[in-house]
């Protein structure tokens, strides 16, 4: 666990995302949208291929936050979904979560995150606020 002080740069975390992970996430989250499983349907609605659930990528961001903060209570978490994480049929896509402590005040730490896949930002303005101390 990292000591959270304003300006602290958090150690980037990398996660491999496979089609099997999306299948498990679909079952666990109750989101059966076929664009996360079926190449043909994904392409038919204009997507570049099977994409990860935005909420799966957000869950990975939350996982990094938990790792950095020693599983601190999350008070707020949010992001925009700006680019899809395309997951190949074989192998995996790598999601990288970086972060900086923006501020610590009144028992709350605000973390500014940067979530990328193959060097491209996939989440817009991802942010988490956790309870500290």
């Amino acid at each position: 666990m990292t000591t959270l002080a304003a300006g602290t740069v958090l150690e980037p975390q990398e996660y491999a995302v496979r089609r099997a992970d999306l299948l498990a996430y679909a079952a666990a989250s109750g989101d059966p949208n076929p664009i996360h499983q079926d190449e043909e349907i994904a392409r038919a609605v204009g997507l570049p291929g099977v994409i990860a659930h935005g909420m799966y990528t957000m869950a990975l961001a939350a996982r990094a936050v938990a790792t950095w903060t020693g599983d601190a209570e999350v008070v707020e978490i949010g992001c925009k979904f700006t680019a899809p994480v395309v997951v190949p049929a074989d192998g995996s896509a790598t999601v990288r979560v970086a972060g900086t402590v923006k501020s610590v005040a009144d028992g709350l730490a605000t973390l500014a995150l940067e979530v990328t896949c193959a060097g491209e930002k996939v989440l817009g303005a991802p942010k988490a606020v956790v309870r500290v101390g």
Partner: peptide, 10 residues
């Protein structure tokens, strides 16, 4: 299948 997520906040 025609739905994608734009943003989310909790």
């Amino acid at each position: 299948s025609r739905i994608v997520h734009g943003d989310q906040r909790f």
